[in-house]
């Protein structure tokens, strides 16, 4: 019983951290642009493919394989996805920031289709699932004879580090201050001499790069990646951001942990729970939003006519 508890707690925290990283991206973009970037999940899930491709490219060009080169490929993927995010912002998403919310939603859903199809066509045999290696392997230590893998520690450590860095960045750097100003009030920020297009570009780069890390961790956790993983991971990350309260970083983390928690609980304690897990997750989403219509930690805004 204790083993089960420890085992599932580890699963919960690992998955929760991945969802939280995705949710942070949604929250960050929504906070600044007021746009739901529905293809964020798809953008994030391009990272495993880029990493695989660059690892193979490195192996072919230099004949080098091994953990060091894998790290290089992963870093390249994260930067590349950040750039993809910034480009998508400039080409597509920014144009919808003043459009009705639903229009931006539909446009980014279509953008998600385009991204998935591009992966499918550009990557060799893109329609098939591709095995993705564990970024780190091996067991770190044991708690009550339950092995705790290095991978889980990596996920938790990386998430903590990223959240801390993001916090420092947003609070203490000039660019972070501009991002916060633009998310508070874009028009006033402009009047204060803040170039909002630069703020958008930076926000998209950061959000997409964090999403890429989440995508890489997810593919590594699942051991496999496929071109359409972005739909469900995106939906789950979005749900996490919304039930936490859009625009709130602690909310995004709490939302990620809650979504992962219900998923793990359903799989562990409900018979046939694995096939019903999405039902449990989304019923929870509905219930949370009925009782907290602006999310758990979201700001309730007083409406004026």
């Amino acid at each position: 019983m204790v083993e089960l508890f420890v085992q599932q707690s580890v699963n919960w925290i690992t998955l929760g951290c991945i969802y939280a990283l995705l949710a942070i991206g949604f929250s960050l973009i929504f906070g600044v642009l007021n746009v739901i970037h529905f293809s964020h999940g798809d953008v994030a899930m391009t990272a495993p493919f880029i990493a695989l491709a660059s690892a193979q490219g490195l192996a072919a060009a230099l004949g080098a394989t091994g953990p060091a080169w894998l790290v290089l490929a992963v870093v390249a993927a994260v930067l590349a996805v950040g750039l993809i995010g910034a480009v998508l912002d400039k080409v597509v998403i920014r144009r919808f920031r003043d459009a009705p919310a639903m229009m931006a939603l539909v446009a980014t859903v279509a953008l998600g289709i385009v991204i998935r199809e591009l992966i499918r066509h550009l990557y060799p045999q893109g329609s098939n699932p591709h095995a993705f290696p564990r970024l780190v392997s091996g067991v770190a230590f044991e708690i009550t004879s339950v092995p705790i893998s290095w991978f889980s520690l990596l996920v938790v450590g990386l998430t903590t580090l990223l959240v801390a860095l993001l916090f420092v960045f947003l609070r203490l750097t000039p660019l972070g201050l501009r991002i916060r100003a633009a998310s508070e009030d874009r028009v006033v920020a402009r009047m204060m001499g803040i170039r909002d297009d630069r703020v958008f570009r930076a926000t998209f780069f950061i959000a997409s790069a964090i999403g890429a890390i989440a995508g890489l961790l997810f593919a590594s956790y699942a051991g496999v990646t496929r071109f359409d993983f972005g739909v469900m991971t995106g939906l789950l990350g979005f749900s996490a951001a919304v039930i936490g309260g859009l625009g709130s970083m602690p909310g995004a983390i709490a939302g990620g942990l809650i979504i992962a928690g219900i998923e793990v609980l359903a799989q562990t304690f409900v018979p046939d729970g694995a096939s019903y897990r999405l039902v449990f997750v989304f019923v929870l989403v509905i219930v949370v939003l009925i009782f907290r219509p602006a999310g758990l930690l979201g700001r309730t805004i007083m409406e004026k006519v």
Binding site: F30, I36, A101, M102, L235, V242, F282, I286, I290
Partner: peptide
């Protein structure tokens, strides 16, 4: 957006 998510759910 919150309502959109409820209907998606």
């Amino acid at each position: 957006t919150y309502l959109a998510l409820v209907t998606i759910a």
